[in-house]
Amino acid sequence: MAEWTIETTGQYDRDSKYYSKKHPEELTAVLDNLDTYLLLLNACAGPFQATAGFIHNEPDGMKAIDQKGSKSRNKLQQTRLYIYAHHEKQILYLLGIGGKSGQGEDIQRCREFVRLIRTGG
């Protein structure tokens, strides 16, 4: 079985740079959960039902990975990493990162990326 590849977007690159400086613990927690999600993708042959508390279903087949499960002593802010798993290409797209407050806008922006990905743009 071929391994999945991660592909970043410009939006994700900008968001992750911002979070690494302003909210490093939140970003670390989210990336740690992303690592688990990637392991799950590689372990399962097709689309699967991941029953982990840090994964949320979003519109257009997107998923959001949050910061839950971190062992940090500080109370971490709600953080969402928006992803899209392209099962035919076996590419996991990282679309962007956001907080709880701008969730609606973040999802709309990420949906545009997903539409582009689906149409091969």
Binding site: E3, T5, I6, E7, T8, T9, G10, Y12, D13, S16, K17, S20, K21, P24, L27, T28, L31, L34, D35, L38, I91, Y93, I117
Partner: peptide, 22 residues
């Protein structure tokens, strides 16, 4: 689209941020 990586750790290594965070 952007860069491709085989793992999250490989992606972190390439991040444009400070070494301490990585």
């Amino acid at each position: 689209m952007g860069k491709q990586y085989n793992s999250v750790r490989a992606m972190i290594k390439e991040m444009d941020t400070d070494a301490g965070f990585k």
